[in-house]
């Protein structure tokens, strides 16, 4: 039964994901890709559970390694997205200043 419920959640999230990105201007393609990539670092939650649940040395080591890689993805992903977007913001305020 639980598998069915999880599959329902999966289906609804997929539809939501499709709907969210319906119209997006070309300049935002790369930042959006980068921002979505940072969200996919959510696997860090799974990594934390694997590393911290004390299920044996293998699980702990693999989990810790996963925590490392997923944290790189999360922290780096959000920061690099922010840098890309701050580039746009400057350009916008520049053009406003000119006019």
């Amino acid at each position: 039964m639980e598998a069915v419920l999880l599959a329902f959640i999966l289906m609804l999230s997929v539809f939501l994901g499709f709907e969210l990105i319906a119209k997006v201007p070309a300049t935002l393609h790369t930042p959006l890709m980068s921002g979505a990539n940072a969200i996919s670092g959510i696997t860090v939650v799974g990594a934390i559970i694997a590393a911290g649940a004390d299920l044996g040395p293998w699980s702990t080591w693999l989990g810790a390694l996963a925590v490392f890689f997923a944290t790189v993805n999360v922290v780096g992903g959000y920061m690099v997205t922010d840098r890309m977007l701050s580039m746009f913001k400057k350009k916008d305020s520049d053009t406003r200043g000119d006019s």
Binding site: I9, V14, F18, I21, A22, H29, I39, S40
Partner: peptide, 14 residues
């Protein structure tokens, strides 16, 4: 599951 499939779908559309 939720965040992963959101990214999976949004990424595909993008």
């Amino acid at each position: 599951i939720v965040a992963g499939s959101l990214v999976g779908a949004a990424g595909l559309i993008l």
